[in-house]
Design a protein around this nucleic acid. Structure first.
Lengths: 145, 145
DNA sequence: TATTGTTATACTCTATAACTATA
DNA sequence: TATAGTTATAGAGTATAACAATA
């Protein structure tokens, strides 16, 4: 057998690059669609709001961002009618964040759209291999050994 | 068997979230280390410069960014001594970009560091499963069916 | 005319610091 | 004093537009 450039792959991409490329596929899919004025980042934040509602500080922890940044997204999502903010009866400092029906609808729509993207991926590489990919991704992302 | 919240996983993360989390693990590893003043984005751009050199416009295509943005990174990498720019003898418009020995060294260091991160991941989920994960990622990222 | 690379500008996302109002 | 949330500000990363130099 003859190897040409055997140890210098034509495709010298790194793991990081490939993770980024796959991530961008989703961003592009969502970015090219109409989401009621919401960008992918809005959808991400909104998806973390639990049905029972939560505070901005707690939401920030869940999403993994600062409360300042989180507050900005919440303000924008209130403006677009996807979230509502009420005072917390138990603590005057807290502003309780909840999804509106429009927010619920967009959140469901997002989940369905992502599932559709994943079905496309599974079709590309095979259901069995994609399931392994997905489980490993889940374990690695959450640091579960 | 009793299922509590069986269809509402405690962990309601999406694929996009998990891809982002894994990507962030790498960014944090690199961001917390000393890379001669380079940020992860610099390392990424530098990694695409071929040994024979290339133009800024061509490099931008390879990296997947605009030539304007690419030109900025190249300027910074020239300032840090990781890249050099020479006029192209065949085309007066082109500025030929090459890595310096320092640039080569940092690029090799990056490849080794990423391989180390991947070995850690493989240890978490098992070599066999990680290999499948890696191959599927590669196929999906590059759109190969 | 077309292309390389620049400067100028703006937008998204994230981060820190300083402030207010409640507790 | 500690915490919830705000405003102000800055930086990284990316994008478009307009331009100069060369082909």
């Amino acid at each position: 057998m003859t190897f040409v450039k055997a140890d210098v792959p034509a495709d010298e991409q790194h793991v990081a690059m490939e993770l980024g490329l796959l991530f961008d596929q989703i961003r592009q899919v969502l970015g090219n669609e109409e989401w009621g004025g919401l960008r992918p980042s809005h959808l991400r934040v909104m998806g973390f709001v639990p049905p029972a509602g939560t505070s901005i500080t707690e939401l920030a922890v869940q999403v993994g961002m600062t409360k300042q940044g989180c507050g900005q997204f919440v303000s924008q999502l209130v403006d677009t009618g996807h979230l509502v903010v009420e005072p917390d009866p138990d603590d005057g400092r807290v502003r309780l964040v909840r999804r509106t029906p429009a927010g619920d609808s967009a959140t469901r729509h997002l989940a369905a759209r992502l599932a559709q993207v994943e079905r496309g991926w599974a079709a590309q590489v095979g259901d069995r291999r994609y399931r392994t990919f997905r489980r490993v991704l889940d374990e690695l992302a959450h640091g579960r050994a």
